[in-house]
Deep mutational scan, measured.
Amino acid sequence: MRVFPVYAPKLIVKHARIFLTGVIWVKDLGRLEFEKGRFLLPRKSLPKVKQAILELNELIEAQN
């Protein structure tokens, strides 16, 4: 598990694309899981977490 002390979308996306499957922890967002290079949306999450995951997945799609 990698810990990101700040929310840096480009760096987080780079990590997810390299490792494809895993878990990261982002300060103020908490634990985020990714599989096959995409972030998974938890069943229950705060609106800011949901927005961050959608933003990260959009960045991943834009890079493909």
Score class of each variant (00 low, 15 high):
residue 1 M to R: 06
residue 1 M to Y: 01
residue 1 M to H: 15
residue 2 R to N: 07
residue 3 V to N: 09
residue 3 V to P: 06
residue 3 V to R: 05
residue 3 V to H: 15
residue 3 V to L: 03
residue 3 V to F: 15
residue 4 F to Y: 05
residue 4 F to E: 01
residue 5 P to F: 14
residue 5 P to D: 15
residue 6 V to W: 13
residue 7 Y to L: 03
residue 7 Y to D: 02
residue 7 Y to V: 02
residue 7 Y to A: 02
residue 8 A to E: 10
residue 8 A to N: 09
residue 9 P to F: 03
residue 9 P to R: 04
residue 9 P to W: 02
residue 9 P to V: 04
residue 10 K to G: 14
residue 11 L to Q: 10
residue 11 L to P: 09
residue 11 L to M: 08
residue 12 I to M: 05
residue 13 V to R: 02
residue 13 V to D: 00
residue 13 V to E: 04
residue 13 V to G: 04
residue 13 V to I: 09
residue 14 K to F: 06
residue 15 H to I: 04
residue 16 A to D: 00
residue 17 R to L: 14
residue 17 R to V: 13
residue 17 R to H: 09
residue 17 R to G: 13
residue 18 I to A: 10
residue 19 F to K: 11
residue 19 F to H: 11
residue 20 L to C: 07
residue 20 L to V: 09
residue 20 L to H: 10
residue 20 L to R: 09
residue 20 L to K: 07
residue 20 L to Q: 10
residue 20 L to S: 09
residue 20 L to T: 12
residue 21 T to Y: 07
residue 21 T to I: 08
residue 21 T to M: 11
residue 21 T to G: 07
residue 22 G to Y: 02
residue 22 G to V: 03
residue 23 V to F: 06
residue 23 V to Q: 14
residue 24 I to P: 00
residue 24 I to Y: 02
residue 24 I to K: 01
residue 24 I to C: 05
residue 25 W to A: 04
residue 25 W to K: 06
residue 25 W to Y: 13
residue 25 W to V: 06
residue 26 V to T: 03
residue 26 V to E: 00
residue 27 K to Y: 14
residue 27 K to H: 15
residue 27 K to R: 05
residue 27 K to A: 14
residue 27 K to L: 15
residue 27 K to G: 15
residue 28 D to K: 15
residue 28 D to T: 11
residue 28 D to I: 04
residue 29 L to D: 01
residue 29 L to I: 12
residue 30 G to D: 02
residue 30 G to L: 01
residue 30 G to Y: 03
residue 30 G to W: 02
residue 30 G to Q: 02
residue 31 R to S: 04
residue 32 L to E: 00
residue 32 L to G: 00
residue 32 L to R: 00
residue 32 L to Q: 00
residue 33 E to N: 15
residue 33 E to M: 11
residue 33 E to T: 14
residue 34 F to I: 05
residue 34 F to D: 00
residue 34 F to H: 04
residue 34 F to N: 00
residue 35 E to M: 11
residue 36 K to C: 08
residue 36 K to E: 15
residue 36 K to S: 14
residue 36 K to N: 13
residue 37 G to A: 10
residue 37 G to I: 06
residue 38 R to T: 10
residue 38 R to W: 13
residue 38 R to I: 10
residue 39 F to G: 00
residue 40 L to G: 04
residue 40 L to S: 07
residue 40 L to A: 05
residue 40 L to Q: 08
residue 41 L to W: 09
residue 41 L to G: 04
residue 42 P to G: 09
residue 43 R to D: 08
residue 45 S to R: 10
residue 45 S to C: 07
residue 45 S to P: 11
residue 45 S to I: 11
residue 45 S to G: 10
residue 45 S to M: 13
residue 46 L to D: 08
residue 46 L to P: 14
residue 47 P to R: 14
residue 47 P to A: 12
residue 47 P to I: 11
residue 48 K to F: 08
residue 48 K to S: 09
residue 48 K to C: 05
residue 49 V to G: 02
residue 49 V to Y: 10
residue 49 V to C: 05
residue 50 K to V: 08
residue 50 K to T: 08
residue 50 K to N: 07
residue 51 Q to A: 14
residue 51 Q to N: 14
residue 51 Q to K: 15
residue 51 Q to R: 14
residue 52 A to V: 09
residue 52 A to L: 06
residue 52 A to S: 07
residue 52 A to C: 05
residue 53 I to Y: 04
residue 53 I to R: 00
residue 53 I to W: 03
residue 53 I to E: 00
residue 54 L to G: 08
residue 55 E to N: 06
residue 55 E to M: 07
residue 56 L to Q: 00
residue 56 L to W: 02
residue 56 L to D: 00
residue 56 L to Y: 00
residue 56 L to V: 03
residue 57 N to L: 01
residue 57 N to I: 02
residue 58 E to M: 09
residue 58 E to V: 11
residue 58 E to W: 09
residue 58 E to Q: 14
residue 58 E to I: 12
residue 59 L to C: 04
residue 61 E to I: 11
residue 62 A to D: 10
residue 63 Q to W: 13
residue 63 Q to R: 04
residue 64 N to W: 04
residue 64 N to P: 11
residue 64 N to Q: 12
